Simulated scan of single mutants.
Amino acid sequence: MTLVSTLGQSLDQVERLKVMQLQLASLQTQIATGKKTQLFKGLGTDVIASERAREGISRLDNYINNIDIVDRRLKLMIGAMNEMKNQAESVLNAIEIQTQQGEYEIGAVSNLARNTASFLRDLVNTKDGDRYLFGGSETTTAPLSNTGTMQTYMVTQLTSWTNAAIDTDQLVSSYNDRMALTDTIIGYSAPLSSGTAKNVYVRVENMTEIDYTVYANSGGMRDIITGVNMMAQIDQVLDKVTLESGDPVGTVTAPGATKQEQNDNFYQFFNDMAAMLNRALDSMDSELYALSQSQAQISKIKESHKLDKNIFADIINQVEDADMNEVAVKLNSLQIQLEASYRVTASISSLSLVNFLG
Rank of each mutant, 00 (worst) to 15 (best):
S299T: 13
N310S: 12
L307I: 15
K306S: 15
Y342I: 12
K306G: 11
V327N: 05
D308C: 06
S294I: 15
R343D: 11
L334H: 08
E339L: 01
E339M: 01
S341M: 01
K300F: 09
Q335S: 13
S341K: 00
I316M: 05
Q295G: 12
A340H: 04
N325Q: 07
N317P: 03
A322R: 02
V344C: 01
I298N: 03
K300T: 14
I336K: 01
S304R: 07
M324N: 03
S304V: 12
L307M: 08
E303G: 02
S299E: 14
R343Q: 09
L331D: 04
N317G: 12
Q297K: 14
D323V: 12
E303A: 09
I336E: 03
F312Q: 11
I301L: 08
L338S: 03
E303Q: 07
A328C: 03
D314A: 08
I298G: 02
I316T: 08
D321S: 11
N310W: 00
K300Y: 10
D314I: 09
Q295P: 11
Q335P: 03
S347P: 15
D323Q: 08
S304T: 13
V344L: 06
K309S: 13
A346Q: 08
E326A: 10
I311T: 08
V344Y: 02
L291C: 14
I316W: 01
N325A: 06
V327M: 04
S304D: 13
N325S: 04
I311W: 06
D308W: 10
S333A: 08
V344S: 06
Q297G: 09
K330D: 15
I315H: 01
Q297A: 14
S299P: 05
K302L: 02
D323F: 05
A340C: 07
K300V: 11
D321W: 07
A313M: 15
Q295E: 15
D314H: 07
S294W: 02
S341N: 03
A328Q: 14
K309P: 05
N310Y: 07
Q295C: 09
K302G: 07
L331T: 08
Q297Y: 04
Q335G: 11
S341W: 00
S292N: 13
K300H: 09
E326P: 00
Q293P: 08
M324A: 04
A296Q: 13
